[in-house]
Amino acid sequence: MAEAILRTEGLTKRFGGLVAVSDVSLDLHVGEVHVVIGPNGAGKSTLTNLLSGDLPPSAGRVVLEGRDIAGLSSDQISRMGVGRSYQKTNIFLPFTVFENARLASQSRTPHATRVFSRAEGYAEINARAHAALEAAGLGHRAERVAATLSHGEQRQLEIAMCLATQPRVLLLDEPLAGMGPHESQRMVELIKKLTADHAIMLIEHDMDAVFAVAHRLTVMVNGEVLESGTPEQVRASPAVQAAYLGGEEMLHG
């Protein structure tokens, strides 16, 4: 297997006395979806926040292509090619859908900070924004104000904005939450399509989706990694079966 594009070593986050993430080591490879599952409060979202720079870790390393990025700010990490979506929809509600994607796309073209030419005048930025919206299935909604979208569509926009920044590593925090079956299916297809040239970390509760896309599976409980490996290995793990007593249907889903 090729060198991991992003890996963590002993990553730990403490809030006062509470240890939210404890000694987590995992790695992400281009061409693979690494799914993190676990009950609520297991520290999955905190883990995402540590990787994206939204929170600084208390201990441990986050290595992106050989460079330790732990403690860098979220904008620096984003510019290095790590994109994330949020569990709670985090978009620009008063703007049009296109403007949401355009802003995201603009962040990749620093010369676009020119002060006197119209923001819409950059073909490259616009093209990237449109492509991201198409990929997320929102092409037909481009001119709508984001606040007027349905919940599912806002989730799609969340992903589109992430894509418009052209990341190589994608951190997706429960992208299916609140989506209908049809939208979920499309999102699963999108994730599969993105896998070829992205390294993806996916946090998800929907077990159908998890087993449809996962190459690797990490189970977190109380901030610690309980088990990590291929989906088959994890399914067979006695520790996981013990922890998920009565959760049979969840794992075989």
Binding site: D75, L103, M161
Partner: peptide, 18 residues
């Protein structure tokens, strides 16, 4: 200018976008 308005509306997301 659009970046400024983006910061006004959602500073956190602007940062996450890089």
């Amino acid at each position: 200018g659009r970046t400024l308005v983006g910061i006004k509306v959602n500073e956190h997301r602007m940062r996450a976008l890089g």
